[in-house]
Design a protein around this nucleic acid. Structure first.
Lengths: 204, 204
DNA sequence: AGTAAGCCTTGATTTACATCAAGCTCATTT
DNA sequence: AAATGAGCTTGATGTAAATCAAGGCTTACT
């Protein structure tokens, strides 16, 4: 259950066996079924979740009922509403499972104790927050300056398995475009790819 | 010089007179002329800056030379490239002054020592990072789902003095639209406002 | 098996915004 | 005082993407 978590930790910080043992005790394992909510708008985010298996998404719903996906979380990623988690304010996000999932949950109390007992986690959690900010800033600049096609290209580039694992209308929602537009973009891309492949054949 | 800084601190944390005295010693006061750079793309961000007076902006420049403004920083705000500041990597942002400015600079070393000596600043700086993330997320959702007019409305709502203090083409860059489009939006808004005022007069 | 429901595609039309081009105003330079 | 240039406006035209509408393909219900 904890293999992936420790693998991820060890990309950034080193842990002794005792520390790992201690670590385990802070997390609550949880299985979730597809479509199940981890967090609903208006509730307080009690956990940060580490994804051992499956995919989740966080999203807001606007006045007209439109969904806007803030984040997808695949295996090895973290997901939560950081703001609600830290402040105890009700969340504006929903988080739900796109597939059956296995999670490791951390409460605020557990996180604080973890940082107190193993101070290098201070740094670790700060890096997570940092990376989240950077990714969001990049996405913002992209959404202000790039075409829908370029944004789709970036998304698939940074997460190649996404078209296989996430429904197309959700990718559209993440990109801030309609499902129709994404469908047309994909068609164009495949036509263009075909042409390139034909060229390559003719060359050979 | 430090009045505004302490006022801002005291919105979130309490400080004794000794702590304030100690605090002062960590900051480097700096005056900047209009158009002067605090940070240039490719350099490492050595400071976080607190703005006592004036306005700065951070922005990226794309391949085609287009500027994309990430942030404006007015009196009482903080500005830096958090990523470069924390990691020591070269920055992708430029930061420059839109007016003559008075800043209080904090190096990484000073920030660390400040947090070590007065631990409540751990919390303070985390809150800053947090708020930055939340604001960026909100702006992202807006840029994906709202019209240019609604985004302009939000901007002016959250910072009413901005049209007086920031050139229009920079607001356009922040909003991700052309100066022409912003000009037309403002015209429409003023026409609509006039109509409402005429109505009010007729009522009276 | 049959019907419904969700998801994707495709076409026709509309809309928001970009681009291109010209002219205006005001501050700065010479 | 004339000239230069930056910033804003306005109009004409072009384009990316939204909207509206319909049809086909799977998967799920009963």
């Amino acid at each position: 259950m904890f293999e992936l978590l420790f693998k991820k930790f060890e990309e950034k910080i080193q842990l002794s066996e005792e520390e790992k043992e201690l670590c385990r005790s802070f997390f609550i394992p949880k299985k979730m079924r597809k479509k199940q909510y981890l967090l609903q708008e208006g509730d307080v985010s009690k956990y940060v979740a580490f994804v051992e298996k499956g995919i989740l998404r966080s999203y807001t719903v606007d006045e007209k009922g439109g969904e806007h996906i803030m984040q997808f979380a695949f295996e090895g990623w973290w997901i939560s509403d950081q703001f609600s988690f830290l402040t105890g304010e009700p969340s504006v996000y929903n988080i739900d499972a796109l597939e059956d999932c296995e999670l490791l949950l951390l409460t605020k109390k557990a996180e604080d104790e973890m940082m107190a007992r193993i101070p290098k986690f201070e740094r670790y959690f700060r890096i997570l927050l940092q990376n989240n900010l950077i990714a969001t800033q990049r996405r913002l600049i992209g959404s202000l300056s790039k075409t829908a096609e370029a944004r789709y290209h970036d998304l698939v580039g940074s997460c190649p398995s996404i078209p296989q694992r996430v429904p197309q209308h959700m990718m559209a929602s993440y990109l801030g475009i309609t499902p129709e537009t994404l469908s047309r973009i994909r068609k164009q891309l495949s036509v263009r790819k075909d042409r390139v492949e034909q060229e390559a054949k003719r060359q050979a």
